[in-house]
Nucleic acid binder design. Structure first.
Length: 271
DNA sequence: AAACAAACCTGTGCGC
DNA sequence: TGCGCACAGGTTTGTT
């Protein structure tokens, strides 16, 4: 593939030149994920890492399509080669397309790194906690992380070093599903409640993924094809501050700030 | 150890 | 219509 890089800020760990050199004439062999880190192994032995942070998007588009504002990286994917073993085209074949990294707030980033030496450019990758979707994730994982800390649940769920992949929307939805207050200390949970929390984490994330994610009013989160998700329609507390609780029908959803993040919960059915 | 604030940016929606 | 302000999906860093 050939590569263009606009704003250098999105490759701040290295440089525009290093990103272009690392991607040019390579083949993306897979698309993987650890927590919120998107990983693309390359046939060069290196891998690309993309993090969307708050406002990033990865989009696939026809060659030459009009690029939206804040398109910072463009990868020109090669057509599936006639020399490939069986010139099979799949429904998700994106050969010949462009892959865009778009990010108005430029909190997101793109970098090419050596997976054998990830600690050099991406030290936080090795420090990510258990991934509830990609890894085996049982109540014992939670007991280890939550059993002996006075930290409260909401910031703990958001801590990527403890559990990787939960963001602000899903932390609130998970705690509501588990009927637990966001400000409850983790070490007050017995094994039964830890088990409910474990199931809530897996169920909320799985349902959200199946629904294509949460696309809020500004339509920032969309999938590779630009399609919106529908999980926002299933939010029971996030974005519902001041409304009657959909679950118990008795409490009013409260919106507070915990750890600098907006947090919504029902004080009646979450304990 | 853990809670908190600030920093990094741009866009949007609101009240006036 | 225009302006200023609050706020937004995340993470790191520094301060109490």
């Amino acid at each position: 593939m050939q590569v263009e890089v606009g704003r250098e800020r999105v490759v701040r760990r290295t440089s525009r030149e290093e990103l272009i050199a690392g991607l040019t004439d390579t083949v993306v062999e897979a698309a993987e994920r650890r927590g919120k880190y998107l990983l693309l192994p390359l046939d060069s032995g290196e891998a690309a890492m993309i993090h969307l942070r708050m406002s990033g998007q990865v989009l696939v588009a026809p060659p030459g399509a009009l690029r939206p504002p804040h398109t910072h990286v463009v990868m020109h994917l090669d057509p599936a080669g006639a020399d490939s073993a069986r010139d099979v085209r799949h429904a998700d074949d994106v050969g010949g397309s462009e892959l865009w990294f778009v990010d108005p707030r430029t909190f997101g980033e793109v970098v090419v790194f050596d997976p054998q030496r990830a600690h050099r450019l991406l030290p936080e990758l090795a420090r990510l906690g258990v991934d509830p979707i990609a890894d085996d994730f049982g109540v014992d994982d939670l007991r280890q992380a939550f059993g002996a800390t006075r930290r409260v649940l909401k910031p703990l769920l958001l801590d990527q070093h403890v559990i990787a992949g939960i963001g602000n929307i899903y932390a609130d939805e998970i705690l509501h599903r588990a009927r637990l207050r966001p400000d409850r200390p983790a070490d007050t949970l017995d094994r039964r409640r830890l088990s409910v929390l474990r199931d809530s984490i897996v169920d909320v994330l799985t349902e959200a993924i199946d629904a294509g994610g949460s696309t809020l009013g500004d339509a920032q989160y969309v999938d590779l094809m630009g399609h919106s998700g529908s999980y926002q329609d299933d939010h029971r507390v996030y974005g519902r501050g001041g409304e009657r609780c959909l679950t118990c029908g008795r409490g009013w959803v409260r919106r507070v700030v915990t750890g600098g993040r907006s947090t919504s919960f029902c004080p009646v059915c979450q304990r």
